[in-house]
């Protein structure tokens, strides 16, 4: 746990942070609004006191109430992984500015987050499906993902209460199965 980076982050980004800096094991976590993503990441990349030049990961997260985009960074200035979470994306129309201008390599990572969660990265010029077929309509890793075909009979379907409650209104009755092969609520 790196106490020094916590202090520097609080001093530099105190006004844009949505919540306290959290630290656990070898990770430091800050939360920001989606609109602040390019500025904060640019500052973390450029400023010599930070120098987080390596984008270790970019992931979408669906919390059930809202969407998040999670960036993991590494820099020589700190022994910790820095986790930047863009919180509070609207679940019905999740949008966040792209960071392709900073890391061109983030293009496919953002495509993947779009493919799996439907998050629109504004400024990514190649935001199309990457794993799922181009005519696919759903976003599989969302918690309200409804398995419309044979996969609905898998033992994994509907295990989480959240997935069942968020099934589309026009879902045919009994289409969501529970473990053990029983049909869902009719």
């Amino acid at each position: 746990m790196d106490r020094a980076i916590r202090q520097r982050l609080e001093e530099r980004f105190g006004d844009v942070l949505a919540g306290p800096v959290r630290q656990r094991h070898d990770e430091t976590e800050i939360r920001i609004g989606p609109g602040d993503v390019p500025d904060v990441l640019r500052a973390l990349y450029d400023e010599p006191t930070f120098g987080f030049q390596l984008l270790a990961d970019l992931a979408g997260v669906d919390t059930g109430d809202s969407m998040e985009v999670v960036y993991h960074l590494w820099g020589a200035s700190s022994p910790d992984w820095l986790r930047v979470i863009a919180v509070g994306l609207d679940r019905d129309a999740p949008r966040v500015p792209s960071i392709v201008s900073l890391w061109p390599g983030a293009e496919w990572l953002e495509r993947e987050a779009y493919d799996m969660f439907g998050i629109i990265f504004e400024g990514n010029r190649d935001l199309r499906r990457i794993f799922m077929p181009p005519d696919y309509k759903s976003f599989p890793l969302r918690k309200d993902f409804y398995l419309p075909d044979d996969a609905a009979r898998s033992p994994g379907a509907g295990v989480r209460a959240m997935e069942a409650t968020h099934a589309p209104r026009n879902a045919p009755p009994g289409a969501i199965r529970r473990v053990g092969g029983q049909a869902g609520p009719r």
């Binding site: 010029r125 190649d126 935001l127 199309r128 077929p133 181009p134 005519d135 696919y136 309509k137 419309p148 075909d149 044979d150 609905a152 009979r153 045919p172």
Partner: peptide, 28 residues
């Protein structure tokens, strides 16, 4: 569904052409 006629699919899940006939989705 082609695998199991008891399962109904909402959308046509089709095979797409190697060179897209559909309008391009992105600038790239």
């Amino acid at each position: 569904s082609a695998d199991d006629p008891r399962v109904m699919l909402d959308e046509q899940v089709g095979v797409f052409e190697p060179i897209p006939p559909y309008p391009p989705r992105t600038e790239r």
